[in-house]
Design a protein around this nucleic acid. Structure first.
Lengths: 318, 318
DNA sequence: TTAGGTTGCGAATAATTGCTCATATGCGGC
DNA sequence: GCCGCATATGAGCAATTATTCGCAACCTAA
């Protein structure tokens, strides 16, 4: 068959989806796709590329590599974790977020598959955002999704890394965003913000969440808090001088995994996670830059779960 | 980095998984994979091919094409279905099972994601088997999985199309296989088989299942019942003469979707599904050969759900 | 209306991938 | 120890895919 016309309602994405389906599921060549869809060969190639670029195509590896499982066991033992997942690394040069995002998505899907209603709290950041993009859509109306920190960027717009909305969209669960900046201008402003009734309720839910998935921010190099304009270079320098090596939901902590009492921490509006035995707090982070931050969080018991990659896992164990 | 050695515990599948991960998730070329893993380029290519052949790599299309949704709505309306899914076709020449298996897997995963404990009954056959291979592993211990028919081939061995074990494996739910042939030698033997206590229990569970996923067998051409040696050509001819156009879990039915009272049906040991309003009975079938069988099952209300492909859906609507 | 810019297309070409074949590398049987 | 047999390997080549480039259509603003 050739020249089957797409119907009037076919959007560009529909076409891309069809081409990618024929390519990846059907195993057709681009020439065959072109013939099937009545388009040129290069258009078929462009449609397939578009489908991948738009995130229409999800690839999962359904095989646990023994090397990763060993590392998971070792991490669990060394740091007393409740859960550890180690993703295959993509090589030294590659962005480790690409490797851990699908694995984190898998773990979060596993959490949502739990029949008992849960409150799942989510942080923000590039890594979590990448995780969300890898998640499959599935209805889990029994759960509730809480935000751990505000989704407002310093300029007042909703942050581009909005995680909670996208997750809620995919699993169709109730969600409780926090209309807050990540960092307030002054400690007083912070106190004012978190005394607002809707914020009080949202924070209460997040504080009592059964499961939390958070990213880990580093203090060395170009910290996310600086890159995204939440703090200035001087403020970061000050935190560093006070011993900060990492940050979770904006809260800076030192080498031993103890939250700092001073500096910018007095202005963080988000929830500070405290480890409680029955809670699962999973850090999702990998990469050489984040190593010190992850290690401190594990040592101080700020988290009791970790999703990382091979290279980082090896470093954390040495 | 080049020449990172796989550790002593790396199986061939582990290597294949790593290569495929670098290829599909990391977007590396086979040359880069070869360098990273310290192997030759063609070995990298073979590993990637092996990972795909072994089913380690799962590809999903996360986009609902409007054309398919239209067809789903139309099928739902015309046949009064509770659920309809239409997969993009892979073109006239391709095996439609390849197209519907991933979509069926997605729907079954959706069923298993339900928080309330369910009894899920499964049929057998090539289509269901292909569906299982596409399923993701996820723990759903709240559900139970029942078999609708025996998994024994005519020669007494366990059938190669054993669906229930594989599903139970993937979702870690309790399962209740049926140690029975699909077709007994005589009606008396059938009655004897189904009076055995363990079989009585397994059948009772399957009959009261909340959800059933079944394949549809055709009577024209080379019917699965004949191909797999459950019935002889003469027996099939007899069924055909009695008006049989299709078969579900072995039970033959006619043009109007009414189960035959005679012939081989008296020797079928599996459960005959009766539509009950609160049950969801989903047929998973596509292809020109199965068209008459699917249409009759829909018309007669033997099923109230359907997963098929575009071409078949169009034919069922014309 | 026209200049400037943007987008989409096909052709050409470079890069990558898959296949075939000849050869090598064990491995069980004698 | 030696002989088939089966399996795995790398080289070379054919097929397929990705990218670049130039052109044309279309849109926008003067």
């Amino acid at each position: 068959m050739s020249g089957r016309r797409e119907e009037e309602t076919a959007t560009p994405l529909d076409q891309a989806a069809r081409a990618a389906w024929l390519y990846y599921v059907g195993g057709a060549t681009q020439d065959q796709i072109a013939a099937e869809m009545g388009i040129s060969r290069q258009r078929a190639q462009r449609l397939v590329a578009k489908a991948v670029a738009e995130g229409l195509i999800h690839v999962r590896l359904e095989h646990r590599v023994s090397r990763c499982m060993e590392l998971e066991r070792a991490l669990t033992r060394k740091y007393g974790l409740k859960r550890a997942r180690v993703a295959l690394s993509l090589g030294k040069g590659a962005d480790p977020v690409k490797a851990i995002a699908p694995v984190a998505a898998e773990e979060l899907e596993r959490i949502f598959a739990t029949p008992e209603p849960l409150v799942v709290a989510l942080g923000t950041g590039r890594t979590l955002r990448a995780m969300v993009e890898e998640m499959r859509a599935i209805d889990c109306p029994q759960h509730r999704i809480a935000s751990l920190n505000g989704n407002m960027a310093p300029d007042g717009t909703a942050s581009a890394f909005d995680v909670i909305m996208r997750v809620a969209d995919k699993v169709r669960a109730r969600h409780y965003p926090m209309p807050l900046p990540l960092v307030a201008a002054t400690p007083e402003e912070r106190d004012l913000f978190i005394s607002l009734p809707p914020v009080v309720r949202a924070r209460a839910l997040a504080e009592n969440a059964d499961v939390a998935f958070v990213g880990v921010g580093e203090m060395g190099g170009e910290p996310p808090l600086l890159k995204d304009g939440f703090l200035t270079a001087e403020e970061i320098g000050e935190l560093r001088a006070q011993g900060a090596v990492g940050e979770i939901t904006g809260w800076a902590y030192d080498d031993s995994g103890t939250y700092l009492q001073t500096g910018a921490n007095a202005r963080i509006a988000g929830v500070r996670l405290e480890r409680v035995a029955e809670k699962l707090i999973v850090a999702i982070a990998a990469g050489a830059k984040k190593r010190a931050a992850i290690k401190a969080a594990l040592k101080g018991g700020l988290v009791n779960g970790l999703i990382t990659d091979e290279i980082t896992a090896e470093a954390l164990l040495s």
